[in-house]
Amino acid sequence: MSGTDISLTDRIGTRHPDAGITRRHPAILPWLPGPVWLADALVTWRWPDADDFPDTTLLAILFAVTGIALLTAAATGVLTKRAPWATALGSGFGAWEIAQAKLLSLPRPFFGTPQDLLDVFITDWHRLGDSLLHSLGLLAAGYTVGSLAGIATGIGLGRSKRFRYWVHPVLRAIGPLPPVALLPLTFVLIPSSWLAGEALMALASGFPAAILTWSGIAAVDPAYYDVARTMGARERFLTLRVALPAAMPQIFVGLFMGLGASFAMLIIAEMLGVKAGLGFYMQWAQGWAAYPNMYAALIVMSLMCTGLITLLFRLRDRILVWQKDGLKW
């Protein structure tokens, strides 16, 4: 064949619209964050604290090490795009250090100093780590079970009339109910608070997964089925190899929503019933007025949540490579 479709070659060769853009940074910008962090170190070290705070020297050393690392990064050309952020972060830490540790301008104990926070990580990392692992375990089990069950339910709703007849009303009755509302009931019905938390998280993640899987399957072009059917495909192939991949973009929206709902459910369950995990740690810290511990737990929690969302997006990018969209997390 002569290959007359000229347009194809340049379509194949098309790169992402952003790919070719290289913004030229002023050459001085990468050199900015290093000195800022070194200045933080100097201020922390030389300017006397307003009160007896722990770990001031260690904090100064950390600032200094960061500053030197940033200077090295600037020298080797690694630090380019992130220089403005590194500068902003350094300035922020410096401002916090001066405002709170040196001038004590905000009321304690609600507002801590950078060294308070550092002290929590140094003295209490073990319990924080344990809490993180516990939360992750609880989340992983509940979310995985809930999502898989949700996808399976969505497939059933999308492909089987009889399944839809029986399950749809149940889903309409239970699904929109905030899982939190079931918390008291669950803790009564299910003797293990861990299992109760799992059940609620599964519910929280399962509902959006089910609805969006169903919606994705309902939107599949019927011609896709006809193509496979003329080649002799049976129901199993049509469901697993046609409907499911076609619905995958929608399914990931459901998984994303479900993950957010599971985070909420996880923290609530840990604050109210499960006697472990980051939610419980925060509850405990608040009870003891250990505010720096609460901030530390918040930071760990934020890292956990954003880390898991990142993982989900990585998975999505892998599975949906065929999609045109350029959304990046």
Binding site: D221, A223, Y224, D226, V227, A228, T230, M231, G232, A233, F237, R241, V242, P245, A246, M248, L320, W322, Q323
Partner: peptide, 25 residues
């Protein structure tokens, strides 16, 4: 085999995977 007005290729399969659809079935 029926061929439609639209190519109805599966967007989640490469050209090769689309062509070999009947072998997968």
């Amino acid at each position: 085999i029926l061929m439609f007005q639209d190519p109805t290729l599966y967007p989640w399969r490469t050209v090769r995977q689309n062509v070999s659809l009947s072998q997968d079935i």
